[in-house]
Structure formats: C-alpha cells, structure tokens
Design a protein around this nucleic acid. Structure first.
Length: 257
DNA sequence: CGCTGTTAGACACATGGTAG
DNA sequence: CTACCATGTGTCTAACAGCG
C-alpha cells in the first residue's frame, strides 16, 4: 500500500506535479511521505495492528508463575487480595492483586476462591406505595426490658404506613405466629379492612412467616409483603424503600404517636 | 451494624505507534 | 517535536451480598 503510494506520487512529481498536491490527492501529508522515503526497508503499515504488546506487559513466564502460585496448596483457597500480601511477607512479588485477578480470570480460575459467596444480583422489586390510610400496614416485634435482668416482654405493634397511626398492639411473653395472627384479626376487625384492601409488610422473622399468621392473612384477604433478605431499609425511610409513603399529613401530626 | 471478599470501573501512568 | 491514540498495568474506590 505504502509502496504503491510512493510510486504514484513519484510518477506525478516527475510529470510536473508538486509534492504537496500529489500527496493531497492521496490524502497524505508531505511529512508522512518523507518518513516513508527515509524508512524504505520497513514499509508495512503499522497502524491498527491487533497486538501491540507494551514492554512492561506480564510475560508468559510471569503469567505461568501466577497460576502456579495461585494453585499451590497454601494459596489455592485464597483470593488474590490475600495471596499478594502473603507473598510480599516472604519478599516475593510477581504481580499486583489486579493482575492476579486478570490472569486467573483469563484462565477461568477466578471462581470465588475465598469463603464469601459470589455476589448475586437480586432484582429490586417494584415499590409498594401507600397512597391512603389502611392500604399498607407494617409491623414488627420489639423487646421490652423487665425488672428481671435478661428477661424481656415482646411488644407486637402494627402501624399504618400512610398515617403512622398505631392500628394494633399487644404485649406477650414469647414470639409466636399465633399471637401475631390474633392481633391481625383484631386490627382488621377494628379498622373494617375488606379483602384485597391491605398489604402487610414485615421483616423475615419466624412469627411473620409462621403458618398460622400466613393462613390468617389469606383468610382475611391481606397481601403479605416481606423485606428482601439482608436489606435493612426496605420498610421505611431508606434511600430506596420497598414500601414508599405518599403522605400529605403535617410532620407534627405524625410525631404525636 | 460494621466488616469482609469480590468485582467493576475510573483514573493515572508508561509505552509504542502514527500523523502533522 | 508535539499531539494524539491504543493498550497494559497499578491503584483506588464504590457497590453489593454475606457474615458474625
């Protein structure tokens, strides 16, 4: 390609054309042509070559060494973030933590070598929006200290998410799905909840998910909703709450309860 | 609730190449 | 010589889920 361009331009110049004009026709600068003339032994176009390996790239030997070390019994169950410092303690440096990750990934060996489970993408559910009173309730059990050290009572409390009104509460000595079911029944009766009117949100405690409670909810036509595992702000006030509140009430009226 | 392990991405830097 | 681009490496950080 280069050789052909040089030949074409030379022929044009011999025929009386100017270098600049001739180069322009081919879309080349004069400097490029002069460099090509100086460098006639290497006329290969080096642009866009697929593989250009920097001089500081890891060598095959270094990559093999990374795999070798990572597969040694002492290191085979450790992540690069631990292998690299352990090697450093022995005055050995092969490559950085990131390079270890890259090389292991390249060879399909980066499969959560440590104790932690791989990160799983849990899709965020569409938020439940409370736009009116008695459309979404939330409930939980709170430990109440007694005068006897180490002994606690349990406060079962349900609030209406929209108005923050306490819709029902009871105190018991233990955590049981039966207590929760009875409280739910009383609250629904008191507030005249109709089937399919209400969503009840809670965390994932055993009384919340107990068979008695779930059966009661089903009988009352209340839709159960649970926080996602390991997500602590799914109920109220979190940055991305599972349960959102659209309330028009003044703040001081909310604080009165 | 705070820490840990893992991963992806942003960024800086070095190197090697072309274009002007 | 400078500007610019592509690529590889190292460092740091944020995000996320799991764990104690």
């Amino acid at each position: 390609m280069k050789q052909m361009a040089i030949q074409l331009i030379d022929e044009a110049v011999q025929a009386g054309a100017r270098y600049a004009q001739a180069c322009n026709v081919l879309g080349l600068s004069c400097r490029t042509l002069r460099r090509w003339h100086q460098d006639t032994d290497d006329l290969q176009d080096k642009r866009g070559r697929v593989k250009r390996i920097p001089s500081h790239a890891l060598t095959d030997w270094e990559k093999r060494r990374i795999l070798e070390v990572a597969n040694q019994p002492a290191y085979k169950s450790l992540p690069p973030s631990q292998i690299v410092p352990k090697l450093a303690d022995r005055d050995i440096y092969i490559a950085s933590e990131s390079s270890f990750y890259r090389v292991l990934k390249e060879h399909g060996q980066n499969n959560h070598r440590g104790k932690a489970q791989p990160v799983r993408k849990v899709p965020k559910p569409a938020p439940v929006v409370a736009r009116a009173p008695n459309t979404a309730w939330s409930w939980d059990i709170t430990f109440l200290p007694t005068q006897i050290r180490g002994q606690f009572l349990r406060l079962y409390m349900m609030i209406d998410v929209y108005s923050r009104n306490i819709v029902g509460w009871e105190i018991h000595e233990d955590e049981r799905s039966e207590h929760a079911a009875r409280l739910m029944e009383k609250a629904c009766l008191k507030h005249q909840i109709k089937p399919d009117q209400l969503i009840l949100h809670s965390d994932n405690g055993s009384p919340m998910k107990g068979a008695t409670m779930l059966a009661t909810l089903q009988r009352l036509g209340v839709v159960p909703s649970f926080s996602r595992p390991s997500v602590s702000d799914d109920i109220l006030g979190g940055a991305l709450p599972y349960l959102e509140v659209r309330t028009q009430l003044p703040v001081d009226s909310l604080c009165r309860h």
